[in-house]
């Protein structure tokens, strides 16, 4: 099959899956218990890696940017730079990539294993829609948790940046905080929360679709898991550019 046809076919299937999830949300049962369980796995389970990622990203940003800012005598603006890049771009994208790696792979592997062991067919045979029972709770959990995880990553990123600025370069904490507040406008915060919602949708749909279309036994589970992470990650990075452009047009440009 030619690549364009294959891509359009996959897009059609993913859209169909989203449509079934949306249709299923109107009817009972709504599987609230599964949603809470998934939120625990997606949200609480990913908190540690997301906090670490945010902390060290904020730290390294200051580590690299401070000498240049100092050269131009603009070291008091260090916090502003970290806040803008973290809240608007790095926080949402890095959090989404970490979650795609940890949660996307797990979703795809779990659903793929269920496919090859006929558990998905059994579920259908027992009168349950896998889209409603398995996909909806995972998608809802990602849509709720990814923005919250991003906020956590942003906070710890700013904290990491502050510690590096203060401990390594001796920047006064109040100067740093004041600079961070200058870089944290409402547009940046809205942008930083809207992006993870789209990224959550991408991770959930791609991973569930790849898992549910697993073919070829246990080898197929490995293939679909790899594809879920790779495709989610590429889609996150590409869609980030277009989302940034659209949000910039709607809410104005950044200070830099």
């Amino acid at each position: 099959m030619n690549p364009l046809k294959h891509f359009l076919l996959e897009l059609q299937e993913v859209t169909g899956l989203l449509w079934r999830v949306l249709k299923g949300l109107r009817k009972r049962p709504r599987y609230f218990a599964e949603m809470i369980q998934q939120m625990d796995q997606v949200g609480v389970g990913s908190l540690g890696i997301v906090v670490l990622t945010g902390f060290f990203t904020g730290g390294v940003l200051i580590l690299q940017a401070y000498p240049t800012l100092q050269y131009y005598g603009a070291q008091s603006n260090a916090g502003q730079g970290v806040a803008t890049s973290l809240i608007r771009e790095l926080g949402p994208v890095l959090t989404a990539l970490m979650v795609a790696g940890r949660v996307g792979s797990s979703i795809s592997a779990e659903l793929g294993s269920m496919v090859v062991s006929q558990q998905i067919e059994a579920m259908r045979a027992l009168g349950t829609s896998p889209a409603r029972k398995l996909v909806t709770p995972r998608l809802v959990a990602l849509l709720v948790c990814l923005p919250l995880l991003t906020i956590a990553a942003d906070f710890f990123g700013l904290l990491g940046g502050g510690i590096v600025a203060n401990q390594i370069y001796g920047l006064d904490t109040n100067v740093y905080i004041s600079s961070v507040r200058t870089g944290t406008d409402i547009n940046a915060l809205i942008t930083g929360v809207i992006k993870p919602i789209f990224f959550g949708l991408i991770i959930g749909l791609v991973s569930c679709h790849k898992g549910l279309t697993t073919k070829g036994g246990t080898v197929g589970v490995g293939v679909s898991t790899t594809q879920a992470v790779v495709i989610s990650s590429i889609c996150i990075i590409i869609s980030d550019f277009f989302l940034s452009k659209v949000l910039q047009s709607l809410m104005g440009t950044t200070l830099f």
Binding site: S113, S117, Q118, E121, A122, M123
Partner: peptide
């Protein structure tokens, strides 16, 4: 319709 039918799979297909 599926709720009226019982299905026994080759390996049991139990939910792990």
């Amino acid at each position: 319709i599926r709720k009226k039918i019982g299905m026994v799979f080759q390996e049991g297909a139990l939910f792990d």
